[in-house]
């Protein structure tokens, strides 16, 4: 089987799903990304990425309970699967390894 690739934005969204846990759905992820790293992302892009992650088996989804807040519409809640978690971990380790290879320059304040 070929290695799955994970894009930068996919990684971001996947991480957010991991952070938000039970409350990971489209809008919440948009807000979270804005709050945490100040990046304004588009709702549709997040949705499409979530579905793609689902196709790759990194997250799974289910419909949550209805509330009054969204005109009675249910939320599609995403949760990270084991494969997703493994993928995140692998990514992080990979990056750490590479980071260690970069000569650590001293930051000087002059």
């Amino acid at each position: 089987m070929q290695k799955e690739y994970l894009g930068e934005f996919e990684e971001l969204v996947l991480t957010m799903v991991g952070i938000l846990q039970e409350d990971a759905y489209g809008n919440a992820i948009v807000t979270e990304i804005k709050q945490r790293i100040g990046r304004v992302v588009n709702l549709s892009a997040v949705h499409v990425t979530l579905y793609r992650l689902e196709d790759k088996g990194l997250v799974k989804s289910g419909m949550g309970g209805a509330t009054n807040a969204r005109g009675g519409r249910r939320k599609r809640i995403f949760t990270v699967t084991n494969a997703g978690l493994a993928m995140l971990r692998a990514k992080k380790e990979q990056q750490m390894q590479l980071w260690k290879l970069v000569p650590q320059l001293k930051m000087s304040i002059s």
Partner: peptide
């Protein structure tokens, strides 16, 4: 449903 909810 999920999308519409998010939009609303």
């Amino acid at each position: 449903e999920g999308i519409e909810g998010d939009l609303l």
